[in-house]
């Protein structure tokens, strides 16, 4: 009995002593999101959404500032963040560029050199055609591809080998056509790709669904397939997924949060908890809906695991496209 009490007292004391160690290390002072593109872009919208939700929901006491460091699809900002090793007050948003840059050999920095804090959202892909063109439906597109992929003029933005390029490549493969014959043209912005489709200079464009919503609603363009596991909401609710149409194409963009290298376990788990709270808050839902984001929180370990798998898959896809050897 006495021994037990002593034991439990020792346990209690141990717990008390350990408590400060067990609680996550919180950052002091203002936090900074380094945005890897200019104001108003995709990175900025997500950064602002996070800033707003953290603020309005009172998830953290710190103030959050945004700074802009555009360049190389985000790689300039990531490199800047990563220079502050062990500093948990600096984070940045990543996209599939973090994998494709490494696979293509254009980035000198790899996600494995940094701390991947979490995955946050998916931006699912939509494929659209021009209703006035010859290829104006999913059936006609597939038919043309199966005849010869070189018949189909595919337009996308913003860099060769990115998620939309690969999404299209997967569709071509799924319908049994030759990927290397695909006639792909890269435009320097999503808007230019949409303009090329409106003007019938290309036959099909794949990009994030948000970009097409208004054109689909107005009848200027027809979205014919979604490369996601489930349908989109809103005005795109009538568009079937590629899987529904019998083609196993699930490929899109995703966005998550990274921090500099050498963060401690406890610093990482502080961020994991806060970022999870953001995606689970009620203020988040309308923002996500408005931007066609599919919320998909993953913790740090799972995010890194997912990126490793993506890197493998991108490597395979880009080899099939002939972009790398």
């Amino acid at each position: 009995m006495k021994r037990l009490t002593l034991n439990s007292m020792a346990l209690l004391a141990g717990a008390l002593l350990a408590a400060p160690v067990l609680a996550d290390e919180a950052p002091e002072g203002p936090l900074e999101i380094v945005v890897g593109a200019g104001p108003g872009g995709g990175y900025d919208r997500l950064a602002r959404a996070i800033q707003e939700v953290l603020d309005t929901e009172g998830i953290i006491p710190n103030t959050i500032n945004l700074t802009y460091q555009p360049g190389a699809g985000g790689a300039v900002a990531w490199a800047t963040v990563n220079r502050s090793a062990g500093d948990m007050t600096k984070i940045s948003i990543f996209s599939p560029n973090i994998v494709t840059g490494e696979v293509l050999g254009t980035d000198t920095i790899s996600f494995s050199d940094m701390t991947m804090l979490s995955m946050l959202v998916f931006e699912d892909g939509c494929f659209a055609v021009n209703p006035d063109a010859e290829i104006n439906s999913a059936e006609k597109l597939i038919e043309a591809l199966q005849d010869d992929a070189n018949n189909v003029r595919f337009g996308f933005a913003v860099s060769a080998g990115n998620q939309w390029h690969v999404a299209m490549a997967r569709l071509v493969e799924a319908v049994g056509a030759d990927v290397s014959r695909l006639r792909s043209t890269v435009f320097d912005s999503g808007g230019r790709a949409v303009a090329a489709l409106l003007g019938e200079h290309v036959d099909v464009v794949a990009t994030g669904c948000a970009q097409f919503a208004q054109y689909h609603e107005a009848g200027d363009l027809t979205v014919i397939g979604v490369s996601a596991p489930e349908r989109m909401g809103g005005v795109l609710a009538d568009v079937p997924t590629w899987q529904e149409q019998g083609h196993d194409v699930v490929w899109g963009a995703w966005r998550g949060i990274l921090a500099p290298r050498d963060l401690t376990e406890s610093q990482i788990s502080w961020w994991e908890e806060k970022l999870r709270a953001v995606t689970e808050s009620s203020a988040w839902i309308p923002v996500a809906e408005e931007n066609y984001w599919r919320t998909a929180f993953l913790n740090s370990a799972d995010t890194t695991e997912m990126l490793v798998a993506e890197r493998e898959e991108y490597g395979r896809a880009l080899r099939a496209l002939g972009l790398i050897e």
Binding site: L104, G105, T106, G161, V186
Partner: peptide, 9 residues
Amino acid sequence: GIDLQSGSS
């Protein structure tokens, strides 16, 4: 800079 069409730098 990066070439838009091929993705090579």
